[in-house]
């Protein structure tokens, strides 16, 4: 598309060496799942480079291998072929530098909010007082103050999402992988958490890979949107050159937004055929 080459002022240093200086580099990635005599191909020859500090949104319909890709990037599963480099070295397993917020809540149901949030630091062996303090700070940050001693089942879906977010941040990762994190939330709450996420990202130099099937969400958040088709084929790769901060109500009527929306929508449709 037209805007792809135009560099935006927002995303970090001028990208000179393009391929070399990615935080995450995915090369010829393939993932097959054995199913009876056949293999189910979830991902095929997928390559992408994520630049440091970039907010990358992977946009695609369900079943295009987005979650598979994120599981691979998080180091939870091993690729069938190809490789993933994190800061230049091959990723062989989960790393505390990479935070992963999965699509479904994985809070420990037998721990209250505080003990869930402090868990990454507990496993790291940090002493109780300082990890409690940090957990408290993060709980306030995601707006869960007053619910420290509630168990996950006593919280609403949105509150569990916030708790999960706080837990991920407790590990202090420099790269965040988010798999449709706000998919199941109502519109207001989603907007709010999107805002919180942007606040957390801006000025920290963190890199974000965000998976969604929602075009508007993609355009509100992203520096760059990659539209995925079946088995992880790249249908479109655009820089989003909209000025930040993007007000959700105003940006929707921005002609640039409308144009991008149209092209993303067209790309998604094309992938469906």
């Amino acid at each position: 598309m037209s805007a792809t080459t135009a560099p935006t002022p927002a995303p970090g240093p001028a990208t000179a060496g393009t391929e070399a200086d990615g935080v995450l580099e995915v090369r010829d990635l393939a993932k097959h799942f054995p199913k009876g005599d056949q293999d189910l191909v979830a991902l095929r020859e997928f390559s992408i480079t994520v630049r440091p500090g970039q907010f990358l949104v992977l946009l695609g319909r369900s079943g295009c291998g987005k979650s598979t890709l994120l599981n691979l990037m998080a180091g939870l599963t091993r690729p069938t072929s190809g490789q993933i480099l994190y800061r230049g070295s091959a990723l062989t397993g989960p790393s505390t530098e990479i935070g992963y917020l999965t699509q479904h809540d994985t809070l420990m149901p037998w721990r209250d909010v505080t003990r869930n949030v402090e868990m990454p630091r507990e496993l790291r062996g940090q002493d109780k007082r300082s990890r409690r303090q940090e957990a408290q700070r993060l709980i306030e940050l995601v707006g869960l103050g007053g619910f420290e001693h509630h168990f996950p089942r006593e919280l609403s879906g949105g509150m569990r999402r916030r708790a999960s977010l706080a837990r991920m941040l407790a590990a202090d990762p420099e790269t965040l992988l988010l798999d449709e994190p706000f998919g199941a939330l109502d519109a207001q709450l989603r907007t709010e958490l999107q805002g919180e996420l942007l606040r957390l990202w801006q000025g920290t130099g963190r890199t974000v890979v965000f998976v969604t099937h929602d075009i508007e969400e993609a355009l509100l958040l992203a520096d760059r949107v990659v539209v995925l088709g079946p088995v992880g084929s790249v249908l479109l790769d655009v820089e989003v050159d909209l000025a930040r901060p993007r007000d959700p109500d105003e940006v929707r009527v921005d002609p640039r937004f409308v144009a991008l929306h149209k092209s993303l929508s067209a790309a998604l449709k094309e992938g469906a055929r």
Partner: peptide, 13 residues
């Protein structure tokens, strides 16, 4: 739930 085990693996447990 394997997802809970994965969560701990992600924390480098």
């Amino acid at each position: 739930d394997p997802a809970l085990i994965d969560a701990v693996r992600l924390m480098n447990g």
